[in-house]
């Protein structure tokens, strides 16, 4: 009974109330000078700043979002194209898995930020370097999620397919891939959010646009309001992408929606 769902409508109403209480408390604390607005501007001040950044003559916010999204999605898709096939192979072949696992264990905990020096040395300061930062920040996780998803496919299904005459390639195409898809999509959703956290690292050097860049320069100019707008923009963008991803899941996994709860 403890894990009972509240239902979409009720949970969103409660969520909205929670958010409202949080924002009001924040607003009051700043307006009564309990919190110095220089350290943390009030929500209304942040909204003002956001409006200013979207409507002014040289408005930058929407362009920033677009540019950052391009960088993140390019790096992320590169990770998917390399990580998913590699993960499938690793999931199916214990020898390859045993050989690659230690390497992945070394790479995976490295923060995207730590790749800046090497990526600059190898790729310079252009867009490739930014894609590389996002790639390095998300690749190992995608590989691990794919491997796990592949390994979680019930081995009895492989047997059933073999018994029906499927070749190894057909098993990969018709059993492993669709069988791993639900876990794989869940993993990719998590990694997409991780990829967004890399944008700060990716836009630390050699950038002159993007949300990460905007946060860094706002810091140099002591513009806390703009820092917050940048941060919230990242959250909102990830949230929107998450919703889009859910839509993709519904399209790709129709059977899950129909059979949920059984």
């Amino acid at each position: 009974m403890e894990g009972k769902e509240l239902g979409l409508w009720r949970s969103s109403v409660i969520g909205a109330i929670g958010l409202l209480v949080f924002l009001s408390l924040w607003e009051v604390l700043v307006r009564t000078n309990v919190i110095d607005p220089f350290f943390l501007p009030a929500p209304t001040q942040v909204i003002d700043k956001a409006i200013q950044m979207t409507t002014a003559k040289d408005a930058v916010l929407l362009t920033d979002i677009k540019i950052s999204a391009t960088r993140v999605l390019t790096g992320f898709l590169l990770s998917v194209f390399v990580g998913v096939p590699a993960g499938l192979i690793m999931g199916m072949n214990p020898v390859i898995r045993a050989a690659i696992n230690p390497i992945i264990s070394i790479i995976r905990p490295l923060p995207a930020l730590s790749w800046i020096p090497l990526s600059m040395l190898w790729l310079g300061i252009d867009e490739q370097q930014k894609y590389a930062i996002v790639f390095m920040g998300s690749f190992a996780s995608i590989l691990v999620y794919t491997t796990d998803a592949t390994m979680r496919v019930d081995p009895i299904l492989r047997r059933a397919a073999m018994n029906l005459g499927a070749s190894p390639l057909q098993i990969l195409r018709y059993v492993i891939l669709p069988g791993a898809l639900p876990d794989l999509l869940t993993g990719l959703k998590v990694v997409l959010a991780i990829a967004w956290t890399c944008v700060i690292s990716a836009e630390m050097v050699g950038a002159n646009s993007g949300l990460g860049f905007r946060i860094w320069t706002a810091k140099e100019w002591s513009d806390t309001g703009q820092v917050l707008v940048g941060m919230i923009s990242i959250s909102v963008t990830v949230l929107v992408l998450d919703i889009l991803f859910r839509g993709l899941e519904r399209v790709l996994l129709p059977y899950q929606r129909k059979t949920s709860g059984t």
Binding site: D154, R159, N163, L164, G165, G179, Y255
Partner: peptide, 18 residues
């Protein structure tokens, strides 16, 4: 593995996505 010997598994082994 012999497709001419068709197996029925205790846990059905159906493909849930089909």
């Amino acid at each position: 593995v012999e497709p001419r010997c068709g197996m029925i598994f205790q846990n059905y082994a159906l493909f849930p996505w089909l």
